[in-house]
Nucleic acid binder design. Structure first.
Length: 267
DNA sequence: AACGGAACCTGAAAGC
DNA sequence: TGCTTTCAGGTTCCGT
């Protein structure tokens, strides 16, 4: 269930593994990852991967024939690097075998819930083109955040998770950042003060960088990975004391997603 | 137009 | 023990 930091780690890994490599084999299973736009696996063979980019939660791999691979990890997608003769992974949905500097490797896309996407297209997808400010790619400060929010009146938590406003912020990053900025998640987005815009922009960077530091590595770890302790400051910590003021953190549901907040700090 | 709720999937964990 | 319910960090669609 990746948000910006997990997708950023994936992009960095894919640059190491795939940039400059040539696709020598492609196996794309019949499943809903390619829903709406079936991919001709054979057409990928012989193509070189020129670059790997990320915006928000999307990955874009530019090929040498002017097409692009768009990959979204949905709720449970991951890209792994394996040997070409390694066995198929559990929930493996597709694979790209690469040759790079005379060495072969195999990229496996694993996604048990299949909310992810894999699209090959000449033109950018609308979902890519309409993405809002990416905190890492574009930078984000109080002024640009305020401009992106505009006069939206929905709650600030829902607006933050709108990918056309700030790209890459999901339920965890929104929850963590709002706590850091001491803003109640239900606050109407249009009612934030300039001071709060600045605090929230800084809090988003803080949360993303903090999560990135936790997750840098060859394979993404998620909170729910067996045995992994919850590394977040407030997300999933309802019932525990607020790290700032010791008030018991509470969980509410907002826009259908669970949200944790401190009733004292985020008044 | 805006909003809540359900749907799309699978599986782990909690509840009974 | 084993069956049932709940929940999950994403996105989209549908009815009000």
């Amino acid at each position: 269930m990746p948000e910006l930091p997990e997708v950023e780690v994936t992009a960095r890994n894919l640059r190491k593994w795939a940039r400059g490599g040539t696709i020598v084999g492609a196996t794309i299973g019949k499943n809903r990852i390619t829903r709406g736009s079936p991919v001709d696996a054979k057409s990928l063979v012989g193509r070189r991967i020129e670059s790997v980019e990320r915006r928000g939660k999307w990955l874009r791999l530019v090929l040498d024939d002017d097409r692009k691979i768009f990959s979204h990890l949905g709720m449970s997608g991951r890209w792994l690097q394996r040997d070409v003769d390694a066995p198929e992974e559990r929930s493996e949905r597709l694979r790209l075998d690469l040759e790079r500097r005379g060495r072969q490797s195999s990229l496996r896309y694993v996604d048990h819930r299949m909310f992810g996407r894999f699209v090959v297209a000449k033109d950018d997808l609308d979902e890519w083109s309409t993405l809002g400010i990416d905190p890492l790619v574009d930078g984000l400060d109080g002024r640009t955040l305020a401009a992106a929010i505009g006069d939206r009146k929905r709650t600030i938590k829902e607006v933050l998770m709108d990918q056309t406003v700030v790209a890459g912020v999901g339920n965890i990053q929104a929850t963590e950042a709002l706590w850091r900025a001491r803003i109640h998640p239900k606050t109407s987005a249009a009612k934030l003060t300039p001071k709060q815009h600045g605090a929230l922009a800084r809090a988003i960077h803080w949360s993303i960088e903090r999560t990135l530091g936790l997750e840098e590595g060859p394979e993404i770890t998620y909170v729910e990975d067996a045995g992994a302790p919850n590394p977040f400051v407030v997300y999933g910590q309802d019932g525990e004391p607020c790290p700032r003021c010791r008030t018991t953190l509470v969980r509410i549901v907002l826009g259908g997603r669970s949200t944790v907040l401190c009733p004292t700090c985020q008044a």
